[in-house]
Design a protein around this nucleic acid. Structure first.
Lengths: 201, 201
DNA sequence: CCTCTTGACATACGCCTCGTATGTGAATGA
DNA sequence: TCATTCACATACGAGGCGTATGTCAAGAGG
């Protein structure tokens, strides 16, 4: 056999490059990350890069896709573990805020990603995180818990609020206390979507 | 006289460079904007740039500062013209969303700015827009209209929601209809800050 | 009126980075 | 065994940034 020897090696090198890129993009930022250093760090050259990916931007695409998938998976778990859909929505918000504390996610997904690749709403995988939030909101509307607002609009604004909160917390001198304030404010805003003034369980 | 001849000329060149930079950064993006082309467009060279500003990033700082001031001024006017503080807050949100439809503001202030200069919350001038929103919220809390939430948290999340809405609207194929959905959702979220379920005039 | 200094800007240079074109050796298939 | 492919390395060219150096007009002083 040994039929897939070439392909296996290639997949491994792709993975190595993506790993190195996550590291480099997260610590130095996209613009300041040198492809020479990045590839050399895993024992390759730029030749491997331009063979496996379209260009530097293509590598960023691959990194973004990978991280987006990981974030979506974590959010999915959070929602499934919540005792009710409404609390699931709030838990998603908190989880999103906390995830954005990760410098890697912050730098790559929230700062450089949009600047280099354009608005996240147009990303393939269609921003899996947003998708999950929208699904949750849709379910809550069908249950009559949430006002019949536009699902995509509500999802996007909630995500935007969470994102802003995350950046704030991350840049704060005292992340702990700021985090609780941010989560409280998020809950307050989210309650504006409720049909009844009283929050459900 | 003619004492300030040198200084006046320098100020004028500074202004010309900033104007050219706004144009170039907005249309090509920060990374793809060539300082050679940019300066040549106003009849200067890179020499003038590095004499008037620290470096390329310094020029972006100057541009951001200018635009931030203009945005704050427009928001201030919107708030003053509103018939009530609460409606002022909503009007500010709408105005912010609409402002972000301007490609210049979008690209420079919302995409490249944060990516290159770091989180906006740490910008000098301290993001005048946020400041205005916070002032409005503080007033509403003192009047008992809004829940006693953390002012900065509420302001940041509201701004984040508006920003997210703006990017969504800007990237939409049908901005008109999306804009109304976004504004509706913003009003819904904002109402979550109210002490009473019923919205005030 | 002449000289000297200052400073705003232009010019010239080196270094780095990206993207592509070309080379190469190992894995495949016959 | 030989030819082919292909994953990757090497070599090359273009362009951009930042700095060091040059230059010439505007002011200061006698």
């Amino acid at each position: 056999m040994a039929k897939g020897k070439r392909a296996a090696a290639m997949a491994e090198n792709r993975a190595k490059l993506i790993r190195a890129a996550r590291e480099a993009f997260a610590t130095q930022g996209y613009a300041d990350a040198s492809m020479d250093e990045l590839t050399a760090a895993v024992g390759l050259t730029r030749g491997a890069l331009y063979h496996n990916f379209e260009d530097k931007k293509g590598l960023l695409w691959a990194v973004v896709e990978q991280i987006d998938g990981e974030m979506a998976e974590r959010l999915r778990i959070v929602r499934e573990q919540a005792p009710s859909p409404w609390l699931g929505l709030l838990a998603e918000g908190s989880a999103y805020i906390k995830m954005a504390l990760d410098p890697e996610i912050q730098r790559i997904m929230l700062l450089d990603g949009p600047a280099v690749l354009g608005d996240p709403s147009k990303w393939p995988g269609e921003n899996a995180c947003l998708d999950i939030t929208m699904r949750t909101i849709r379910a809550l509307i069908e249950e009559g818990i949430v006002k019949p607002v536009d699902v995509e609009a509500a999802g996007r604004l909630l995500n935007g609020a969470a994102l802003s909160a995350a950046l704030w917390v991350a840049a704060a001198d005292d992340p702990k206390s700021v985090l609780s304030k941010a989560v409280d404010a998020f809950r307050a805003l989210a309650s504006g979507l409720l049909r009844e003034a009283r929050e459900p369980a």
